[in-house]
Nucleic acid binder design. Structure first.
Lengths: 233, 233
DNA sequence: GAAGACCTATGACATTTATCATAATATGAC
DNA sequence: GTCATATTATGATAAATGTCATAGGTCTTC
């Protein structure tokens, strides 16, 4: 894990993600976690951890945007998913596996909240409601990744590109106009097609006046048409 | 849930899956579960539950083979995965969702062990080690599904077919000769290609003397070649 | 500011995959 | 057993997708 711990000015009792993870905590446990957590700020392009690294922390994203990916023997990356604050938390292997099974790197400056894995385990073992919350939270993340994989698998190239554009505009940014946080190649690595065809498909959507393109900036001009393409293709 | 409860002759303390789920149980909790579980036998072709059904049980497969799938508005099925005893257990939504998010039906006669969801929750809430075991177990299943999805996504048709044949021979049956528990169409629904191309690809593998086909019976004659095709394609 | 690396873009072409048609075989219902 | 239906199979063709080549633009590094 790169990055340098930042002064932990954060008060866990005020954390907006508290409800998702620590709602069941006693003041004591919350104080314990709060004093023992470390926040790591990361800049765009930095790698948080790599496939195969030892798991030392339970971690969740407080802010920013990351990509989860695997690298094959030939050095080609395959992106598992792109995730924001509520979508990225150590997946379920965190208590059973010893090593990371994928890499995570930063697409938009991020803050990661990290809790020593042993301390986390210890608390989980004496607070069953917390274990349950954790299970629900991590389960939701896993399920989302599984569902997304199925949606991508069943679409053709146009459908795939439309699907991921809609993910950016609906799930990630909540706006029809946004700056793509990834390259065309990374989109290709995410949805399983070639970079050239991603570029070509984007150009076609532009020619059909469904989107407007200005470098990294994308504007979804005709969301209904994009939905149709996503659902049909 | 169809099927009729069978006489519960099973003694949980002897259950071969016990270690996976109930290792941390006190004799008391184990007895409690054992007395309150219900075993449902299912025949090939039967549906265990459908997407959208109310979740009433925590369930895991004791024996047999099942498929997890989703049905789209047009009525087309998409198979999420094919799972045996250690690979199928209520996924992580079981404590947070109220309804099933996919359907499960039976490929090979199966026995499902079911525990009332409320009782399960209650035990999980007072036995944190059990919650932890559960989390690990369910996490392993989720992770396996995610990984499988990625492997399928990155392969071309030959690689996909080779991949799933290897799954049958290595993971499911542990033998190079086996009866396919699914139709060619179901294979297509699993790996995201057309039925015709699954059939064609199988025929090609036969012509290349990598496999032998006799109806549902498949023999992997040249496992090394099949591995190469799976890894290259 | 020059060089190199990467990103975006597009065209031409080859290959892969899907679609449509047809038929033999197998399976299930009555 | 027979009829209806689904499955397996194969070929012909169309459509989609990948590969290769080229080029201008952008960004980083020295």
């Amino acid at each position: 894990m790169e990055g340098h711990p930042m002064d932990s000015v954060c008060d866990c009792s005020q954390c907006e993600l508290r409800k998702a993870f620590f709602d069941s905590f006693s003041d004591e446990d919350l104080g314990d976690i709060c004093r023992n957590k470390t926040e790591f700020p990361f800049l765009r392009g930095e790698t948080i951890f790599r496939e195969g690294d030892l798991i030392r922390y339970f971690s969740y994203l407080k802010s920013g945007l990351v990509k989860l990916f695997k690298t094959d023997p030939a050095g080609k990356d395959q992106i598992i998913t792109i995730a924001g604050p509520y979508d990225f938390v150590s997946l379920l292997g965190v208590f059973s596996d010893t090593h990371q099974s994928y890499s995570v790197s930063v697409l938009e400056d991020a803050v990661l909240c990290c809790i020593d894995i042993e301390r986390m385990r210890e608390i989980a073992l004496r607070n069953a409601r917390f274990s349950m919350n954790l299970m629900e939270r991590m389960g939701a993340v896993s399920n989302k990744i599984i569902r997304e994989g199925l949606e991508i698998r069943k679409r053709n190239t146009h459908g795939k590109v439309a699907y991921i554009l809609l993910k950016f505009c609906k799930d990630i940014y909540g706006e029809c106009i946004f700056d793509l946080p990834v390259s065309r190649r990374e989109i290709a690595e995410n949805i399983g097609m070639t970079t050239e065809n991603v570029i070509r498909t984007l150009s076609e959507l532009r020619k059909e006046k469904v989107i407007r393109i200005n470098g990294k900036e994308i504007e979804v001009v005709d969301p209904a048409a994009l939905e149709r393409i996503s659902n049909y293709g």
